[in-house]
Design a protein around this nucleic acid. Structure first.
Lengths: 145, 145
DNA sequence: GTGTTCTTTTGATCAGATCAAAAGAAGCCG
DNA sequence: CGGCTTCTTTTGATCTGATCAAAAGAACAC
């Protein structure tokens, strides 16, 4: 629905200490519309509004967002990196092992690290990253024939 | 230590329904000596005993092992794939965010999936993969100066 | 031993991502 | 408003990790 970027987009970008540019607006909006998008999917969306934008500028913006704490990068095994704007909470993900679809899973255990291993081999543990693997509804249905 | 491969190696490979070959023996022994090794580290080790072995044959063997359930491939975000022989249990990993060192963490919650999300978005959950991120003892010490 | 089947070698190719230099835009300051 | 500094984008090369494919070679059932 957003033909042009809404002001909140600009505020979010500027609030993270980054200059507001066309590419960044496009990337932010793309992530808002499509959480868990790959870089090339973000690029695709950005291109609709900014046909001249380059893949590199999208990678730049995504990297800047992650560095500024605006976005988070996740990387399920066997998949390209995915980006999401949800950064303030401690949530996890469920990935369909058939089609790769990713959805958020709320963390019920509290704040990070939400789990505490018994034997950490001397490591100091900061974050517990949980990824659930299974089948999404569509793939479950498809495999039942 | 094994100058030549021990019989158990052959038995494990054959027991998984695979032909016993030089490369496979080398790969199996390498994983036994170095758990959580990258493909190129396995290759390095295999080469010591089999100077003529190719990287491709190592990738083949690793893939075959994973396919046969002999080995498991893990892939911490931002790292190349790592291979391990521990497949029978339900354990997790802790990764040093500085040097990338990986250690096993026993799962105290039982059998897979050891965690159960409240809202699975309709997904059927099969496995819960837990990765702890932190600093290993060496990197903790190094960052304390 | 012999033959079929599986494995390895060789070399090309791929995806995802990053690096680097030059051109261009953002936005601060007067 | 206009200039200037700094940051961003573009362009195109480069990199790593991994995979594909065809031909040569080895495993092992008989």
């Amino acid at each position: 629905m957003p033909a042009a970027s809404a002001p909140p987009t600009d505020a979010a970008i500027r609030g993270a200490g980054l200059r507001v540019t066309g590419t960044r607006r496009g990337v932010y909006d793309a992530l808002h519309e499509a959480p868990h998008a790959r870089a090339d999917e973000v690029f695709e969306r950005v291109r609709r509004a900014l046909p001249g934008a380059s893949m590199q500028s999208v990678y730049n913006a995504l990297g800047d967002f992650v560095g500024a704490g605006l976005a988070r990068r996740i990387e399920p095994a066997g998949h390209a990196g995915l980006f999401e704007l949800r950064v303030a909470d401690n949530h996890h993900h469920i990935v369909c092992r058939s089609c790769g679809r990713v959805e958020d899973v709320e963390c019920v255990t509290g704040s990070a690290p939400c789990l505490h291993p018994d034997d950490t081999a001397g490591f100091s543990v900061e974050v517990a990253e949980v990824t659930f693997w299974g089948l999404c509804p569509a793939c479950t249905a498809a495999s039942a024939n």
